[in-house]
């Protein structure tokens, strides 16, 4: 029974990793940009929510709703002013600029908030759980997983049911032709990053409420997100959820054997998938 419990905890943890990964996957899918500062932006979001909670005295969920438009605008401006300049054939500029951004955000947070670890308090909800037979499930892990599913459903609806989604897909396929049809790729890219930052805010809410965080944990979140995307196969959001679940289960199983092996087990699972299925489990377009 303990193994079933461990695996279920791992699946739910996978929801968190899928939330980390969804924003990364969205931006890569539309403009082939890998944002190395993605993890640091999630941590930045968590600090933003923390500040809103402590200054306005709001419930963390409401604070996330206050933080979301700020992150949205930040994403739009970041893409329009900085990242759009780096797009092109050469892969060096986007990588090196976002790497620089990662260092700037990390050290900016260190300067502003020190290296002390923080946590956004949820009160009784933190320890609340529901019992299913012999297994008890935390309310927060369940909520995280449900949010991940909701975000993926929402993004898929956005892609395939709305005008902006059509613009996203058109620009992703061929920016030049799309621009002949009256689409302005630079604005489409800015909107995509802005929407990705909304997903980042949701990820930040759960990152900040479920465990301690400090300014240096961003790169590790980027790595989990990246592993989930690669395992799932590029361009498939449901695949990303599956990837997140695989990392999550590998980590909880590893931790059950030896607490020091938690992170390592996740990485090893990723390397095994890379070895067996280099294009991921659910690659788009065969």
């Amino acid at each position: 029974m303990i193994w079933v419990d461990t695996i279920i905890q791992g699946v739910l943890l996978g929801g968190l990793y899928a939330l980390f990964a969804a924003g990364l996957s969205l931006v890569f899918g539309i403009m082939r940009l890998v944002n190395l500062a993605h993890g640091d932006l999630i941590v930045f979001g968590a600090y933003l929510i923390l500040v809103v909670v402590s200054v306005l005295g709001l419930n963390p969920f409401l604070a996330a709703i206050v933080a979301a438009p700020v992150m949205f605008v930040l994403g739009w401006v970041l893409q329009k002013i900085v990242l759009n300049r780096t797009l092109g054939e050469d892969i060096l500029p986007p990588l090196l600029v976002t790497f620089g951004l990662s260092i700037v955000i990390q050290n900016g947070l260190l300067e502003g908030f020190s290296a002390d670890s923080q946590r956004i308090s949820l009160g009784a909800l933190e320890t609340a759980s529901v019992s299913l037979g012999q297994i008890s499930l935390g309310v927060m892990p369940l909520l995280t997983f449900a949010s991940a599913v909701a975000v993926i459903v929402g993004l898929n609806q956005l892609f395939y049911r709305t005008a902006i989604g059509r613009a996203f897909r058109a620009t992703s396929d061929d920016p030049t032709t799309a621009s002949l049809m009256g689409i302005r790729p630079d604005r489409v890219f800015a909107s995509a990053t802005a929407i990705a930052m909304l997903v980042v805010t949701i990820a930040a809410l759960y990152l900040g409420t479920r465990a301690n965080f400090d300014p240096n944990i961003g790169p590790a979140r980027l790595i989990y997100a990246f592993e989930a995307v690669i395992i799932g196969g590029l361009g498939s959001l449901w695949g990303t959820l599956a990837g997140g679940i695989i990392i999550g289960v590998a980590q909880t199983l590893g931790a059950a054997v030896n607490p020091e092996w938690q992170i390592l087990a996740g990485h090893v699972a990723f390397l095994i998938v890379l070895l067996v299925r280099p294009r991921g489990l659910f690659p788009r377009g065969g």
Partner: peptide
Amino acid sequence: GTWYLMILGLIGIGVML
């Protein structure tokens, strides 16, 4: 300390752009 790395990051971004 942290300012040093922040400035280095900003210079790196500026040069790349």
